[in-house]
Simulated scan of single mutants.
Amino acid sequence: MNIHEYQAKQILKDYGAPVSEGRIVLRAEDAKTAAGELEGPVWVVKAQIHAGGRGKGQFLEPEAGTKGGVRISKSASSAAEEAQKMLGRTLVTHQTGKKGKPVGRVYIEQGADISLEFYLAVLVDRNTSRIAFVSSTEGGMDIEEVAKNTPEKIKTFTIDPASGLSSFHGRAIAFSLSLKGKQIKQCVSLVSTLYKIFLETDC
């Protein structure tokens, strides 16, 4: 199943997971209104295509500017301008091939004050044919590069289908990320939510 980032975040939000506020923009003339509905002081403008590496990508058209498919803005008007530059252009990443993919929609998201970034995914482990969580303290980076160069920084937690998920798994993941205090409880809750989403929506 291929879905865009904004669609995935809507599913997360529907299940109660903490997600930053955002607006999807399909037409350039709607960008200013969408950006204005979000509080600053930072806005993140993201091209929506079915490919990874958007932030490091490049647009084929000069009109889109030299920045990649994920851009930081310090005002709503600037965010709207960046969205307008991206819409209708072609974004090339390491996953799209040289022809790239057209950007037919842009997601404008409310920025956050980020201290640390983590990686957390739930998937089917092909080696065990079981659901597994994969975590890493190296969030915000190409996880493929982390796996290649520093595989010890990636932890896998397999779920036994007979017993299912328990709070133990959530705590183990929290400890693997060096979380402390109330962060552990938040992690346990998030892992439980992600597991439920995975089972019920198959995505």
Rank of each mutant, 00 (worst) to 15 (best):
P41R: 00
I11A: 09
E29H: 13
G36R: 01
K13C: 15
T33K: 13
W43Q: 00
W43H: 02
A31P: 01
V19D: 03
S20M: 10
V42C: 00
A31Q: 07
A51L: 09
P41M: 00
H50E: 13
Q10C: 13
Y15F: 11
E39L: 06
D30S: 10
P41V: 03
A34T: 01
E29M: 11
Y6G: 02
E29P: 08
Q48F: 02
I24P: 07
P18C: 03
Y6Q: 08
K46D: 01
V25S: 05
E39I: 01
A31L: 02
A34Q: 04
K46Q: 04
A8E: 06
V19E: 08
E21D: 12
L26R: 14
E29Q: 15
P18S: 03
R27L: 11
S20I: 04
L12D: 12
A35E: 07
I24C: 14
G36Q: 02
L12I: 11
A47Y: 05
L12G: 06
G22F: 06
A28N: 07
A35R: 04
A51G: 10
K9C: 08
G22C: 00
E21R: 10
A17F: 05
G36I: 03
V25P: 02
A31V: 03
G36S: 08
A8N: 12
L12Y: 12
A47G: 10
E21I: 07
A34F: 05
G52M: 08
W43P: 05
T33E: 14
G22P: 01
E39A: 07
A17W: 04
D14S: 15
L26E: 11
G52K: 06
K9G: 02
E29K: 13
E21T: 12
A35T: 01
K32T: 08
I11F: 08
L26A: 12
E39G: 02
Q10T: 11
D30K: 02
A47K: 00
